Computed example of a mutant assay.
Amino acid sequence: MNNKRRIDQTEIAEVSKIDTYKSIIESLLFVTGEPLSIREIGTIIRCNERETLEIVKEMEKDYKNRSRGIKLISSNKMLQLVTKPNNSEYVQRLLKTNVRQSLSQAALETLSIIAYKQPITRVAIDEIRGVKSDRAIYTLLEKSIIKECGRLEVPGRPILYSTTEEFIKYFGLDSMESIPSLEDILNNFGEMSKNLKSE
C-alpha cells in the first residue's frame, strides 16, 4: 500500500514538473514573439533536446483544444506561438490594420538580400549579413513572403530561397520588375549624401 502511494506521488510530481516546463516555454514564446529553437529552449529550461521535444509534444496536444485562441507551430525544430487563423477577423478589428506584423530589422535585411540575389542559400545570406539568418528566414517563410525554390547542385545540396507573390502584395508592388535596381538605390543614396553635405 505504501509503495503504491509513493508511486502515485512520484507520478503527480512528474506531471507537475512537466506542467511547469510547459508554462515556462509558453512564456518564452509569448515574450519573444519570434520563433525559438528547441535547443535554445532546452538550454534555458535546462533539459536536453529529447526531453524538450517530449514537453513540446505535450504542448501541441494541449493547443489542439478548439477552445484555445492560439496554436503552436513547430517546424525544423523551431517553435512559435500564433493566433488561430479563424480568429484573424477579430484580431484585425482590434488592431484596425492588417494582421501582418511589421518585419524586424533582421527580417528586412534578409528579405532585401533574397529579393536582389535570388535564388540564394542561407549560407550565402549569412555571409552577406555577417550573422546567422535562421530566425529571420523562418519568419519570412511563415509569412509566405519567401519560399524554398529548389536546391543548389553542390555537396550537401543546400536549400535555395526566393520571393513569392505575397512579397509583391506585401510591399504594394505591381511586379518584381517594379523593384528599383541596386544601382538606382545607390545613386539616390549618393545624391542624398551630397545634399546633406551641402547643407
Rank of each mutant, 00 (worst) to 15 (best):
M1H: 13
N3A: 08
N3S: 10
K4D: 10
K4G: 01
R6H: 05
D8F: 15
T10I: 13
V15G: 07
S16Y: 00
K17R: 11
T20Q: 12
Y21C: 12
Y21M: 03
K22V: 10
S23Y: 04
S23T: 06
I25P: 03
E26Y: 07
S27Q: 10
S27K: 14
S27A: 09
V31N: 12
T32E: 08
E34M: 15
P35L: 14
S37Q: 13
I38P: 09
I41G: 06
T43G: 12
R46S: 11
C47F: 08
L53Q: 06
V56F: 03
M59P: 05
M59T: 03
E60V: 06
K61D: 01
K61Q: 07
D62P: 00
Y63F: 09
K64W: 06
R66L: 09
R66P: 12
S67W: 09
R68D: 04
G69W: 09
G69E: 10
I73V: 15
I73L: 07
S74M: 03
S74N: 08
S75P: 00
N76L: 05
K77Y: 03
M78E: 09
L79S: 04
L81K: 04
V82N: 03
N86V: 11
V91K: 00
Q92F: 02
L95Y: 08
T97N: 05
N98H: 05
V99G: 00
V99L: 01
Q101V: 05
Q101T: 01
Q105F: 12
E109R: 01
E109L: 00
E109G: 06
L111I: 01
L111M: 02
L111W: 02
S112R: 02
I113W: 03
K117T: 02
R122K: 14
R122D: 07
V123K: 11
V123G: 02
I125W: 09
D126W: 00
I128L: 03
R129H: 08
G130N: 11
G130H: 07
V131D: 14
V131I: 13
K132R: 07
D134S: 12
R135K: 07
Y138G: 05
Y138R: 06
T139C: 10
L140V: 14
L141R: 09
K143G: 09
I146V: 13
I146A: 01
I146Q: 09
K147D: 01
K147C: 09
K147G: 08
E148K: 15
E148D: 15
E148L: 11
G150V: 08
E153N: 14
V154D: 13
P155W: 13
P155Y: 12
G156F: 14
P158C: 15
S162C: 13
S162K: 08
T163D: 08
Y170C: 06
F171I: 07
F171H: 10
L173C: 10
L173P: 08
D174L: 10
D174S: 01
S178T: 12
S178N: 13
S178Y: 02
P180M: 14
D184I: 11
I185W: 12
N187H: 09
N187F: 09
N188P: 10
E191R: 14
M192C: 14
K194N: 06
N195W: 05
S198K: 14
